[in-house]
Computed example of a mutant assay.
Amino acid sequence: MGYPPLTKILASFFGKLLEQEIDPLKNVLVTVGAYGALFTAFQALVDEGDEVIIIEPFFDCYEPMTLMAGGHPVFVTLKPSPTGDGELDSAGNWRLDPTELASKFTSRTKALILNTPNNPLGKVFSKAELELVASLCQQHDVICISDEVYQWLVYDGHQHVSIASLPGMWERTLTIGSAGKSFSATGWKVGWALGPDSLMKHLRTVQQNSVYHCPTQGQAAVAQSFQHEQLHFGQPSSYFVQLPQAMWRSRDHMVRSLQSVGLRPVVPQGSYFLIADISDFKSKMPDLPGDVDEPYDKRFVKWMIRNKGLAGIPVSIFYSRPHQKHFDHYVRFCFVKDESTLQALDEKLQKWKDELRP
């Protein structure tokens, strides 16, 4: 379902990447943004009482979408490895414990939701990590819903690998993408889901009886964009080459700037977000105004907006409630900013730095 020129180019473009013969009528669904693809997938595939494994930190719609479908979220946490004194943390240091992950699979597990590159952390899952997930999904006959909206935004030589390209995974994977993220056109609300007909037929039923389809004009524009990318793929004229180069520079700029006031960035491998450790501030000013049960990062963000004119997102909101207190010392920042905004950031941080001097 979708505008035929778009479904055809998506089938052709991603067929090469996933090494699959993709049928534009059976294996492609165009949705109202990647959000629409996620919602349709949960409604189509998760039944009352089914368990869905969610890797923390997670994009915040995964838990409510699981609950809306009648499912039960089961959380497994990426844990940071210790870093040396003065050494910047990297999103690649945050890893799953294989034994803990395996313990989350039960006879009631229906699906696992994977997000690579991850929002908010910016982690790009390695092929070895994906092979572990794939092995457990196959062993327990579990569907993988793979949210890959930031797949073109990877840095430092890292490679995005789609789990559907691994042996035995196409048959049990939904791969979800976003035109808004791919072409910097957020708000267009054109997304897609790719997968085997055995899964896609259920998504088609849900979409046909809900939103039906998304506006044709946006689909036509996305089709033309992909046609251009197919002709220029891997070349300097490709937007998928140009975009990460520009964002790489913005990322490094923001990392340096945040360090200047004592924030400790976790350098992302992908996406256009980074998180920064605010532990030093938590120890120096632990009693910021706020509710008694309010996580520290939420109070810090409100303080930072009021007093420093800087906005961020508290990372604890990307965790299940029992785990929020363990990760309330991080703030997420977005670095997809133009030069003038980054300069304004520097000015505000310089003023902050001056205020910190004894």
Rank of each mutant, 00 (worst) to 15 (best):
G234P: 05
G234L: 01
Q235E: 14
Q235A: 10
Q235I: 03
P236A: 06
P236G: 13
P236M: 09
P236R: 13
P236W: 12
P236C: 09
P236D: 06
S237N: 14
S237K: 14
S237Q: 13
S238G: 08
S238N: 08
Y239V: 15
Y239P: 11
F240A: 03
F240E: 01
F240Q: 00
F240L: 00
V241H: 11
V241Q: 08
V241C: 04
Q242E: 12
Q242V: 02
Q242K: 12
L243Q: 14
L243M: 14
L243G: 08
L243N: 15
L243W: 15
P244N: 02
P244Q: 03
Q245L: 03
Q245F: 01
Q245D: 04
A246P: 05
A246C: 08
A246W: 10
A246V: 10
W248I: 09
W248M: 14
W248R: 12
W248T: 04
W248Q: 11
W248P: 06
R249K: 05
R249S: 02
R249M: 03
S250H: 09
S250Y: 07
S250A: 13
S250W: 09
S250G: 06
R251P: 00
R251H: 01
R251A: 01
D252L: 12
D252S: 10
D252C: 09
D252V: 05
H253E: 08
H253V: 00
M254V: 01
M254G: 08
M254H: 01
V255C: 07
V255T: 08
R256P: 03
R256N: 13
R256S: 14
R256Y: 09
R256V: 03
S257I: 03
S257L: 11
Q259I: 11
Q259T: 14
Q259E: 11
Q259A: 13
Q259Y: 09
S260C: 07
S260H: 08
S260G: 06
S260R: 12
S260E: 07
V261P: 03
V261N: 05
V261W: 04
V261F: 07
V261S: 06
G262I: 00
L263P: 00
L263R: 01
L263K: 05
L263N: 00
L263A: 02
L263G: 01
R264G: 02
R264P: 01
R264D: 06
R264S: 10
R264Q: 13
R264I: 03
R264V: 05
P265Q: 01
P265S: 06
V266F: 14
V266I: 15
V267M: 03
V267Y: 12
P268G: 05
P268Q: 05
P268N: 07
P268I: 08
Q269K: 00
Q269F: 00
G270L: 06
G270R: 12
G270Y: 10
S271R: 07
S271Q: 07
S271V: 08
S271N: 13
S271E: 13
S271A: 13
Y272F: 15
Y272K: 10
Y272V: 15
Y272D: 11
Y272N: 15
F273N: 10
F273P: 01
F273S: 09
F273L: 08
F273W: 13
